[in-house]
């Protein structure tokens, strides 16, 4: 299969130097999977610092903590692959969850129909951002910044600023089946869907072309505008799912839910090896990026590091992770 991600050529075998070639292979692996290696190193470090880290319960906790940001970040991956950015995902998540809760609570919609309303809200918000970008030629940063504000405002309008209890289906999304938390299941399902879209659907492969060189893609007959609208629509739907999971965990849709999550989502995608310049990015990388953020938060919590300092440390991790990636690419 061809892959837009740069593949490192297999190291030439130097004559009579088996150790060197083995070392080169390891070096190749590390440089091709920098984020994964970083995540493993981080886990080992956390385990050494606090053995509590590696208990099954805590690992499931990390999964739950990662889930909302990871689902947002999967959607964000499509956008970033096309060289765009979606700042609205946190607000759209909150609005979608609020619509699902409100239509169930105040309009008395059946839970599944209410959930569908929530998903449609995300879809509509995404399509609007996409249309503003593709047809009205607004820069994605501006189009989605506007949507960030509009969606948050609408969330407050709908809820009157008061949390609304969620329906049974949504609460189920925040619960667990047996020992497995539902947010982790949803995370895996959405990840699989995201992977399938990017790697198996023609529109997914077209995203890489559009992000790599929009004009070349257009001249090759790829319907660039439709691809862009699809991309933001997908980001909107993924945001809606993330919002539903988040509200399910809290058993209520909060008007200020997921504030600032868009930045975590973008950070996860970028830590995962995607380039903001477009054309590069993988779902697996994004998952690792989201896990890196969750592991750091979780570990620092276990170590009783104050939430204030956590923000400082996360900022530094993002800078270092992306810095290493830039250096690696330069060398390649």
């Amino acid at each position: 299969m061809s892959n837009t991600q740069e593949t490192t050529p297999t190291a030439q075998k130097a004559p009579g130097a088996d150790v060197t070639s083995k070392r080169a292979k390891i070096a190749d692996f590390v440089s091709a999977n920098g984020a994964l290696v970083g995540l493993l190193v981080l886990c080992v470090a956390m385990f050494i610092a606090t053995p509590d880290f590696l208990t099954p319960n805590n690992l499931l906790n990390v999964g739950i903590q990662a889930s909302v940001v990871a689902i947002l970040a999967f959607g964000q991956t499509f956008v970033i692959v096309t060289a765009g950015i979606d700042l609205s995902v946190g607000s759209v998540a909150a609005l979608s969850a609020m619509v699902a809760a409100f239509t169930g609570q105040s309009w008395g919609m059946p839970p599944l129909v209410a959930l569908l309303f929530g998903l449609l809200t995300g879809l509509a918000a995404g399509m609007l951002s996409g249309a503003a970008t593709a047809y009205a030629k607004l820069p994605p940063f501006i189009a989605t910044l506007a949507m960030l504000s509009v969606a948050r405002g609408l969330t407050l309008v709908v809820s009157n600023g008061i949390p609304v209890p969620t329906s049974s289906v949504v609460t189920w999304l925040g619960g667990s089946i047996g020992p497995i938390p539902m947010p982790v299941v949803v995370l895996l399902v959405m990840g699989a869907i995201g992977w399938f879209i990017l790697n198996r659907l023609s529109v997914g492969r077209a995203m890489y072309a559009v992000g790599g060189n929009l004009e070349a893609a257009r001249l090759s007959g790829i319907p660039v505008k439709r691809v862009l609208v699809t991309v933001y629509a997908l980001s909107g739907i993924f945001a809606a799912v993330a919002g539903l999971v988040l509200s399910g965990r809290l058993a209520s849709a909060q008007p200020q839910a997921a504030t600032g999550y868009e930045l975590d989502a973008i950070a996860a995608v970028v830590i995962g090896g995607a380039s903001l310049a477009g054309g590069v990015g993988r779902i697996s990388g994004t998952l690792i990026g989201a896990l890196v953020l969750a592991v750091i938060r979780n570990g620092l919590n276990l170590l009783n590091v104050s939430a204030f300092w956590q923000q400082v440390i996360i900022g530094l991790v993002i800078a270092v992770a992306v810095g290493i990636d830039v250096l690696r690419r330069k060398r390649a």
């Binding site: 061809s2 890489y208 893609a217």
Partner: peptide, 25 residues
């Protein structure tokens, strides 16, 4: 060209959408 993409991808852009079935590459 999409310089960062593979030879195979670049050769296939003109047929990527038209040869897809049910949206599948």
């Amino acid at each position: 060209l999409v310089l960062g993409a593979s030879v195979e991808d670049n050769l296939g852009y003109a047929t990527l959408m038209s040869s897809a079935r049910y949206g599948l590459v």
